[in-house]
């Protein structure tokens, strides 16, 4: 076989993709909703740490801010895949929120369901998050989309500029430039 290397390259990439993708872990424990008593013990500051990812969930679930925003979190704000949760506690009951967080009740987010079924939140974590959401009601909401966009566009221009500088000596038309210059001098 003449061109083994290219086929090998293709197979390696495919194999790695398949093999590494299979390494995802199985669910660690069955989900349980926080009880009313546990909710009352929620700590808003802990909730904020968990929400923003400074602290990790016990079962390694992803931090909330990847998809949600609560008040003024982070210089560029929280995520926007899911709804903004700044005032969620005034619109929904605690039970509904705990239901979504724990995947156990009637109100369930279809996007969050598979994610947090694999890595469920502990009752304490649910309580902390609820407390954090309650504490943030009425906070000014961050909206920095324009800033993200502006920074990204500026970065792109910077990258283009860098390419232009690195390749400033690239070969451009030789004949046309030479002839035009010579004709101009003759005139």
């Amino acid at each position: 076989m003449k061109h083994k290397s290219e086929i090998r390259q293709l197979l390696i990439v495919l194999f790695l993709t398949a093999a590494l993708a299979g390494c995802e872990g199985a669910p660690s424990e069955s989900p349980r909703a926080a009880s009313i008593k546990e909710v009352s013990l929620g700590n808003a500051e802990n909730g904020r740490q968990l929400f923003m990812g400074y602290a990790h969930f016990e079962n390694e679930g992803p931090p909330c801010m990847g998809c949600h925003s609560v008040g003024d979190n982070g210089i560029l704000g929280g995520g926007a895949l899911g709804p903004n949760l700044t005032n969620v506690t005034t619109e929904k009951t605690d039970d509904d929120i705990i239901s979504v967080l724990s995947n156990t009740g009637i109100v369930i987010s279809p996007v969050m369901l598979p994610i947090y079924r694999d890595d469920p939140l502990t009752p304490q974590e649910q309580a902390d998050l609820l407390a954090f959401m309650k504490a943030s009601v009425g906070e000014r909401e961050t909206n920095k989309e324009w800033l993200v966009f502006a920074v990204s566009v500026a970065g792109t221009l910077g990258a283009a500029l860098a390419l232009g500088i690195v390749y400033r000596h690239r070969l451009r038309s030789v004949r046309r430039i030479m002839v035009e210059k010579a004709e101009k001098e003759l005139r």
Partner: peptide
């Protein structure tokens, strides 16, 4: 991706 010393057809 872009050969920097590629003559064009005009050359």
């Amino acid at each position: 991706f872009s050969n920097p010393a590629m003559p064009t057809m005009d050359d």
